[in-house]
Each structure stands twice: as C-alpha cells, then as structure tokens.
Nucleic acid binder design. Structure first.
Length: 689
DNA sequence: AACTGCGGTGTTTTT
DNA sequence: CACCGCAGTT
C-alpha cells in the first residue's frame, strides 16, 4: 500500500517519511511504543492475541474461584471484548446484576494481570492509544499536532474507539477523509458501528460527499446480481450503482447433491478455465466458515490444481509456532506470564499442572511475577518437592542461558538456539511421524521468515518481529504472484477482486450462518457479507449450493439460501446436478428442497436459452466455457452424452453422467460412479455400455 | 505427580 | 471433527 501511495504521489521508492500507514491496531502499537510511557505503558510491551487472552482469562477465572461452568472462558472474553470495543475499561464497567458483578471482577483482575505481564491485548491496543489523547495525558497536545490529515479506508468497519481515535488525531486541522460503503459493513460482531458512516454527515456538518456509483470492476450481470442481493437491507442509503461494461456471462447458480459434488464443480470449473487459457490466480473460492475449505482443498488437490488457503488457521496460530514465539517472547519480556506458562513444560520436562499451580500461587502470595516465583522456588527448598524443584531449576537454567545469548544473536539465530537447547527439535525428531515432521518444517519456515525479516527490515529487532507476526493479517501473506487458486472466507475477501469467483455453501444455516438466522440485524450483516463476496467478481460468478452438506460432523439439509432467491432470473443460469440414481430415504423426495429441483424442468429451461452464448467482448486470456453446450445440441459425440445416461469407464465401472464441458476437441465429463462416487474424467476414457 | 486414553461437548466471521 | 476435561494408569 505504501509503495502504491508513493507511486501515485510521484515519489516512487520513497519511504514517505512522516506519513503513517497501517491498520488501527498496527498504528496504535506504534503510537504506544513511542508515547506509551506517558500513560503508563512500557515501551517493550508484548501483544497478547486471542489465544493468549483466552489463556490468561482462564487463569484469572481459576484463581478467582469463578466456575467456568457458569462463566465459560470464551463467553467472558467475548463480553470483555465487546466492552473494550465500546471504550469501556474495567474501571468503567458498570455491573448491574450479579452476573455482571462477576464479570467486572474478572475484568479487573484480567487487566491487572495484563499490566503485570507487561502485555496488551488487541482491544487494549486501541484503548491505550485513545488514552494518549485524554486530558491528563502529557503527550496529548503533541499528538494532536502530529498529523495534518487523517484518511480512513473501510470506514464502515470502524468501532467506537477507533472513531474516537481518528477524531483525536485529526483534532488540529479537522481534516478527515473517510472512504467506505455501508453495504460492506461486515464486522459488527467485533464492535464495528455502521452508524459511524451512516451518521458521518450529521457528525461533520459541511463535509463534502463524493459518491462513487460507477462500478468498473464487474460485468453488468454480476452487478445486477449484487444489487439484488443487497436491496432488501434497511440499514442503508439507497444507491444507484451502474456500469458501462457489457452484460457478460450469466451468473451461474450451481445446485449439487453434496459438498463433494460442489467441490468437484469448483475444481472442474477451474480446470476448464485453465484449458481456455486462464491462470489459476484468476480464480477465487469464497466460503462462510473456514471449516468448509477442507473438501475444496481435497478436490483441488485431486485435480492437481495449485491452490492457496488464505487465512483460516494462521501460520502463526499453529501450536508449534506459538510455542517457539512464546519462548522468544519470554526472552524478550520476562514478565510475560502467559508465555512462560505455555513453555514451562514444552517439550515435556516433568513440570505438570500442579507444579505450575503452585508457582502461580506463590507469585500471587508474594506479589511478584511468575518468572520471579520460578526463581524463588529454585532458591527456597520448601516451596516444591525435591523432584519438581530440580526440574524447575533446570528450566530456569535454560532460560538464563538463552537470555544470555539474546542480545548477541540476531533473532533467527536465537530461534535456532531455542530450538536446539530447549529439546524441542529433538523431541519432534524423536516422534518421527508425519505430523512431527510437518511441525519441524513449520518451525524451519519460521526461522526462514525471521532471516527474511532481518534482511528486509531497517532495524531488525526481536520485539519488532514479534509485533509484526501478532498483528499480521491473513491477506498480508496472500501473494497473487504465487499463481494459485485462492481459497478464503468471504470476510477475508473484502478489498480483493478476481476475474472468476465461486461462492460455495449458499444454504440457509451456512450462508446466512445459523447463528445469525433469527436476528434481523445479523441477517442484514450476512447479506452485506454476501454482497461483498459477489462484488469481488469481475467477469464470472458462480453461486453454489447443495442439497446435503456434511459440515464439522453434522448433516445439514440444504435449504437454498434466501440470498439466491433474491437474484433476478434474467441474469442467472442454472447448473443442476441430478440426484443420485439410487434413492435412499435421505434423497427420495424428503426434505425441504422437495420440488425445487427437477431434472426435466431444468433441462428444458437450459435448452430454451438456445446454444451457448458467445461472450460479448472477447479479451486476452478470457475464459470461454459452455455449461449447456451438450444440452443445446442434444446428444454429444459418439458417446451420446446426456445427463443421466450410463457410460462405462475401464477402471471405475459404470456411472451416470452428471454434467460435461467441452475442453478443446474433447469433453470433460462429470460422472457418478457406483464404485467411487463422483469423478470428472475425459470423454475419451468412457465407452458406451 | 505426570501422562495417556477416553468420552463428551460444542462449533462464525478477525485485528 | 477437534478440542477439552476427566479419570485411570505409570
């Protein structure tokens, strides 16, 4: 982004000194590193991510004797998170009932523990940054002078604290530009307040409004579909988005039997596109929840298609990476109690829960940090038994020697030393499983990333590296140059664009998500999310749903998403997979989709549209494909391809044709085999019965 | 006192 | 399906 801004300013290659550019969290961290001491934050604080936050809260609840049955950690964290996003710290948390009183006490202790650990959580970054501007802050005046202008992108996703921060930082000149679209507000659940943008003009009398209503990205058909999806929302100002581009291809609405068939459709769509000259990176697949990525990955792998999952379990969220990072963090900041508790018995060195509990109790009794308690337990023989004491002593010794090495080694070398001296590497090597090998590879990748960081950063420090990786967002790591099909959640997709987009799982309960389904405001947000997904598409869009879906162990009956029902019939083209030839109780007419699919009707409607449409504007690298080519021509080739006809494959046996596409001179046929299920094979491998 | 295996439970989205 | 807590085992 910085490079692009420099280029637009005609200052290519410049680092744009004085200009700050980053996420709210990133900029807040930067402000706090520079000025935090004015509000009581040490310069070398560490940042706790959601997982650290959860662990710390679990500890707090445990220590306060709060039952995690009535107060599940996740729930308590969620409540505190919400409070933070509204600018409410523990001191301002008003407890109205007995439940809230417990939360309030947990919140207070949690804040104390954070302070003791010299740590700041995500919400805290923003809160502390905002405090820099409070009347009693000694740097408030300096900071209010610091910037001439503030520009906020994706303004519809700012929360109350972020908005107040913007107002403070622009106090001197009152010069603010915000860019946003209320229809793309998708982070309400983490405190984003859509009113920030809807009421902006009211809050800033005299503000100029520039409406960007011409869409340069998508074809007219895609734009019509998008407009239809968003139209039912009430929390919006009506807009008239228009485009001068051609209608383009119809939006394909795919209906399959199962999620595997859907994945198969995704893979064969990509494959067909590649055969027509598209590149893998021209494709993106969006889903509502990360759990949906697995089937898609499997299908793409089977088809030998390169793909990249963006987001999901972040690389830095993997257990082994977090372990290593915890080591580094503890070396960097001895007070980091959550980090210390994480590594004290990793790899297993005989320091179990009861020992840690004792150390933690000792720390509280003496009013010291966990690391100090470790030292005390080593010195004073009565705290722990003989065995545990020796083990803890060995661990303390390990930390001491690592810490001694810290300042003389660059970050990557330090990480390697940790890997070797802690016994972590040996343990993984000894395990000698596919998983342990993978973990070792991940750790080597982390070390490689650190070396890369050392090369590229102006002043590489361990602290800075650690901050980068906790604040790194998922899309930061997405590199379109990698030449792979991109897989991501609709949330992650915001701000990106792709020539051909496939959105999967358009079923009630999946998208819109089950958790939102009986809350009107939440459904509006789901609708905006769907709008975001749809508007990522430039040339081609596929909206997929299935009649049966297995998702994280449960079977869902696929009621078509309400969003599909909002699409104007003129812009869509159906691809409907027939139900399996066999009928069991699951598929035999029962279920909410009953009567919605009908092979005869769908064939008729597809035939009715005549032969394959040629794309109005052929462009370089354009993908041309005809889903209904076969049907338009009746039977295809010597095989007599017809949906529902039976063909034989040398290896897979007899199967029923589901769909096919032309690929050069040949056809790619999707067949449901009795033996192996749905496969896509080239027609030349198929014979008539 | 740590570790292992089992059963039960809950499961969005992300900085 | 993955994670967590628990109970029994080493």
């Amino acid at each position: 982004m910085k490079e692009r801004v420099a280029r637009l300013l005609g200052r290519e290659g410049s680092d744009l000194p004085g200009m700050w550019l980053g996420t709210f969290h990133g900029l807040s961290a930067r402000l706090l590193r520079l000025y935090g001491e004015a509000v009581g934050i040490r310069k070398d604080f560490v940042i706790y991510d959601a997982d650290d936050q959860r662990r710390l809260m679990a500890r707090v609840l445990h220590d306060l004797n709060i039952s995690d049955k009535t107060f599940p950690v996740r729930q308590v964290v969620a409540i505190i998170d919400r409070a933070q996003n509204q600018g409410i710290s523990a001191a301002n948390f008003v407890a109205s009932g007995p439940f809230d009183k417990v939360i309030a006490s947990a919140y207070r202790t949690y804040e104390e523990r954070l302070a003791a650990a010299n740590a700041v959580d995500f919400g805290g970054l923003l809160l502390w940054a905002l405090r820099l501007g409070s009347p009693d802050s000694s740097v408030a005046a300096t900071l209010a002078e610091r910037f001439d202008h503030v520009l906020v992108d994706e303004f519809q996703d700012t929360n109350s604290v972020q908005y107040r921060l913007v107002r403070f930082l622009s106090r001197r000149t009152r010069s603010i530009t915000v860019v946003g679209d209320e229809d793309q507000s998708i982070y309400g659940w983490r405190g984003a307040d859509i009113r920030n943008i809807l009421d902006f003009e009211r809050d800033h009398p005299g503000a100029g409004v520039i409406k960007l209503e011409q869409n340069y990205r998508s074809t007219a058909n895609i734009l019509r579909a998008a407009n239809a999806v968003i139209a039912p929302n009430t929390e919006r100002r009506p807009k008239r988005l228009f485009t001068n581009t051609a209608a383009g291809d119809p939006v394909v609405v795919f209906e399959g039997e199962t999620e595997r068939e859907e994945a198969e459709y995704v893979a064969s769509t990509v494959q067909a596109g590649l055969a027509q000259g598209a590149a893998p990176r021209d494709f993106a697949v969006f889903y509502r929840t990360n759990a949906q990525s697995r089937v898609l990955e499997e299908a793409l792998r089977t088809h030998d298609l390169p793909y990249l999952v963006v987001g999901g379990t972040r690389f830095y969220d993997r257990a082994e990476i977090k372990d290593m990072v915890a080591y580094l963090r503890v070396l960097q900041n001895p007070d980091d109690a959550v980090g210390l508790a994480r590594i004290i018995n990793v790899p297993a060195r005989g320091i179990g829960n009861s020992t840690v509990d004792r150390l933690s109790a000792l720390a509280r009794d003496r009013g010291v940090g966990l690391h100090a308690a470790v030292e005390i337990a080593v010195r004073e023989p009565d705290v722990l038994g003989q065995g545990p004491r020796h083990k803890v002593a060995a661990f303390a010794e390990l930390l001491k020697s690592l810490r001694a090495a810290k300042d003389s080694l660059p970050p990557a070398d330090l990480a390697e030393k940790v890997l070797a001296d802690s016994g972590y590497r040996d343990q993984l090597a000894a395990e000698n499983t596919v998983e342990s090998e993978g973990r070792l590879e991940n750790l080597m990748e982390l070390v490689a990333q650190m070396r890369e960081y050392e090369r590229e950063a102006e002043e590489p420090t361990l602290a800075d590296f650690l901050e980068r990786i906790t604040l790194a967002s998922d899309v930061d790591s997405y590199d379109p140059e990698k030449g792979a099909v991109a897989l991501m959640t609709a949330h992650t997709a915001k701000g990106l664009e792709f020539p051909e987009v496939l959105v999967v799982g358009l079923e009630e309960g999946v998208f819109p998500h089950q958790r939102s389904i009986d809350d009107d405001a939440a459904v509006e947000e789901e609708r905006r999310l769907c709008y975001v997904a749809v508007t990522r598409a430039m040339r081609r869009l596929h909206l997929c749903r299935v009649r049966w879906r297995r998702l994280s162990g449960q079977q869902l009956g696929g009621v078509p998403s309400r969003f599909l029902g909002d699409l104007p019939a003129e812009v869509i083209d159906h691809v409907i997979m027939p139900p399996p030839a066999y009928h069991d109780e699951k598929t035999d007419g029962a279920g909410p989709w009953q009567g919605r699919w009908n092979r005869g009707e769908s064939l008729r409607s597809m035939r009715g549209r005549g032969p394959a449409r040629a794309a109005p504007m052929a462009q370089p690298g354009e993908i041309t494909r005809h889903y209904d080519q076969g049907m338009a021509h009746g039977e295809e080739g010597e095989l007599g391809l017809r949906v529902g006809s039976k063909l034989k494959h040398a290896k897979f046996g007899v199967g029923e044709v589901c769909a096919w596409q032309s690929v050069g001179d040949d056809f790619k046929v999707t067949v449901r085999f009795a033996s192996v299920g749905v496969k896509t094979v080239m027609a030349k491998f198929l014979q008539r019965l």
